[in-house]
Amino acid sequence: MRWEGPLLILMRLLRAGLTLWIVISAVFILARVGGDPVQYLLPPDIAGPEREDLRRILGLDRSIFVQYLIYLENIAGGDFGRSFFSSRPVSDVFFERLPATISLMAPSLLMAVVIGVPAGVLAAVYHNTVIDRVLMALSFIGQSMPSFVLGIALILLFSLMLKILPSSGDGSWQHYIMPIATLSTILAASIARLTRGSLLDVLNRPFITFARGKGLPRFSVNITHGLRNALLPVVTLIGMQIGALIGGTAVIETVFAWPGVGRLMVDSVIRGDYALLQFGILILAGTVIICNLLVDASYLLLDPRLRSRGAA
């Protein structure tokens, strides 16, 4: 049916919009039940009237519902407000921190894929051998270790005991090693496990026996026919894990004192900097949603059966 494709896309976009709305509303409410930002912004010895003034300036004197409506109206006009803390536009504060986070996330994601996928392929191809067992044991450990534990363990070992890597900050390339290692470990481990499982499934399918029967080289059987068919769930996982990765950066940036948006978000929670928090969450949630849409679109690339259904 011709309308099916566009309708599907429209539904997706509607859902994405709805998700975003729920996220910003939830953050709006949660931030406000969390406490009074004025108490973080002013020293304790400042008197009551001045506090009330600040509250008025920040718009906090009105009811939550009115604040919410004003907030939505401002967003619609492209005005995301100013940071309570630094009085600069929230987008400026946020985006100047973004490169530091991207410079962690992108290499971590890349590392996780570059390590996870081949490890999963090896484990599946050498199913039930020592290689498989060792890789799966490693990935089990990697997957079950909380990232802050791993981060702290790395700091203890390489910074405090061996003194070969810096424990915090982002001054040199050495600073990148431990945060990236920490961030990519869990993801690499789950990618490896999923790749293995998915590939094992595919390798038992009759078309693999037929491909072997054609006398194709092993690489072609395992990769061109095997992995290529096993990729769909792996891509889904990677797309979904981007959200987890963003969450992970908040922890990792705090552990390694990394000046990225993850720590900025943690800080703005602590300081009660609602406007900044709301903006940051909006952007991060938007990123996750876009990643999910990209994953959906990549299905069309990976599976010709879906492609022709969309086109028909």
Partner: peptide
Amino acid sequence: RGKEIAMVFQDAMSALDPV
């Protein structure tokens, strides 16, 4: 295999790689 001895299986539907 494939060169001197070739095989055809029962289920053609699943002998071909879908992608």
